[in-house]
Design a binder for these strands. Structure first.
Lengths: 152, 152
DNA sequence: TTATTTGACTTTCTTTGACCTTTGTTTGAC
DNA sequence: GTCAAACAAAGGTCAAAGAAAGTCAAATAA
């Protein structure tokens, strides 16, 4: 027996053209006569990054939920492999840099992008994780900008 | 669904020639059939100094609102200004994105770099600052890689 | 047990309107 | 004619209401 979640999933899949769809949570919930949070349930259980989906949203007036499906390719295979086997839920700086070097030699990122990312994850950026998100973010952004300054 | 604020923003952008525009708050509000204060809302949320806009105005008869978009050729000056005046030691996500948009419009970063950095500082990356540097790093890196995946 | 459904409560963004301040223009006493 | 008072014409502020989406835990179903 199909659950309502299965049906909502199918519906979304059928609508997902060009690998992208914009929808309204309330409208959808209304259409399927379910609680709005059921839509979130479907999204978190069926449209996960592991399955190749990315979900973005905005609250408030004019709010929306956007689902992007990225089609698989060698590049994505490669990156998924790195994420699942080497990064997992923790990675130290040196190993992270090795992964980035790998991406660089495979032309998945260029020199400048490499530098940006190395900066983002450097100890300089991540030092002092004082539980205050905005402070960490400021550090990351400041460091990336300083890095960009250095060029030429 | 686009909000009226989005539409007003687009209109202003389309009119903003030579990086400068003069407009009447009441006329605009009338044109878009909205409250005059809605214009202020659009200005304060979308035409911020961080994005490189300056808004001046004058009240009374013959009053006006003037919007100027500043661009720069001195990359280093520009970046230092952003760091010292807007980033400082803490910045929230929305303001950080405005700064990145500023860099994008000034051709200091390109689309892909923009996406990488937005990802690095997104709440998705920074959530759960559990005091464990490597875990945060893993999240940042994972998110950046997923972002890169999305292209083409 | 595990997966699904529901609903109360929270957070974020937008819209509206009442009231405020500043600036320019008329008007009337002198 | 001058000048201050009154009036008109902008724009500014702020808080309340409205519109979405998010979270989380309890209830239910498989």
């Amino acid at each position: 027996m199909k659950t309502i979640s299965d049906i909502i999933e199918e519906f979304i899949l059928s609508q997902l053209e060009d690998g992208e769809i914009n929808l309204s949570r309330n409208e959808l919930a209304n259409f399927f006569n379910c609680a709005p949070s059921q839509i979130n349930y479907v999204l978190t259980t069926r449209f996960t990054p592991m399955k190749g989906y990315d979900v973005e949203s905005k609250r408030g007036g004019g709010g929306y939920i956007k689902i992007v499906k990225y089609t698989t390719s060698d590049k994505i295979e490669h990156i998924n492999h790195l994420i699942n086997n080497y990064i997992r839920d923790a990675i130290d700086y040196n190993n992270a840099v090795m992964i980035l070097e790998n991406l660089l030699t495979n032309n998945i990122i260029d020199e400048k992008e490499y530098k940006i990312i190395v900066t983002a994850i450097s100890n300089k950026s991540l030092a002092n994780p004082t539980n205050i998100e905005n402070k960490i973010r400021a550090k990351i952004l400041t460091n990336i900008l300083r890095e960009i300054c250095k060029e030429e």
